[in-house]
């Protein structure tokens, strides 16, 4: 038996005369269909920059604080797909993947994160960080920021300039090297 909020009612009605029950069960079936439909509607559709439409579960949606606030505060029409002009279908599918695993994969989350990261090149990482920031997804944003940190932490200033597209205007600034635990505390 499908357990729904209405399930309890089926049992109660079962004690009534049989012919009534038959009729009621038909009604209930209709009710259930309507409930299923209502749940479908709760799924929000998101439209990416390349015109793909995604149906997104409420549990995933609640990670996307920006979409949440669009729905809650601006009372937009949720029967039409919400346009996300900054996000490609490829990235949205990655984002949904990540949010899904983050919620339901409790055992191998670290393993998933490792695979997730490996599948991305630097450009894609940047795109995804921009998307996570735009949608305001804290878990993904923190994860990507930490990944960027790991990527650049041990690199040279030359690598950093290249990585972030920065022009070198520092002929005068000398390279500084500093160990974690440095200097002597004795010399004043």
């Amino acid at each position: 038996m499908v357990i729904t909020a209405k399930g309890k009612e089926i049992l109660e009605i079962a004690e009534e005369p049989e012919y009534v029950m038959l009729a009621k069960v038909e009604d209930l079936k209709m009710d259930m269909l309507r409930i299923v439909e209502e749940e479908e509607i709760k799924k929000i559709r998101l439209k990416t920059s390349d015109e793909a439409t995604f149906e997104v579960e409420p549990s995933i949606l609640k990670e996307m604080k920006r979409v949440q606030s669009l729905i809650n505060t601006e009372a937009i029409d949720t029967s039409v797909a919400i346009p996300l002009p900054n996000i490609t279908s490829r990235n949205l599918s990655r984002i949904i993947d990540f949010c899904w695993e983050h919620q339901y994969n409790t055992e191998n989350l670290e393993e998933f994160k490792g695979r997730f990261l490996k599948s991305l090149n630097h450009q894609e990482l940047k795109e995804l960080l921009l998307a996570a920031n735009y949608l305001n997804i804290k878990t993904l944003f923190d994860f990507l920021c930490n990944s960027f940190t790991d990527l650049i932490q041990n690199e040279s200033p030359e690598f950093i300039r290249d990585f972030f597209n920065i022009l070198n205007d520092t002929n005068s600034v000398k390279s500084m090297h500093a160990p974690a635990f440095q200097g002597s505390i004795d010399d004043d």
Binding site: L130, N154, N168, T170, S175, M176, A178, A180
Partner: peptide
Amino acid sequence: PVLPDELILKILHRVLVRSLLRFKCVC
């Protein structure tokens, strides 16, 4: 894609001090 300043700052907030000292000469 170019990351805006605010995002680069958020990344730099997580970088170890010894790396930040080195990054002073990026620009």
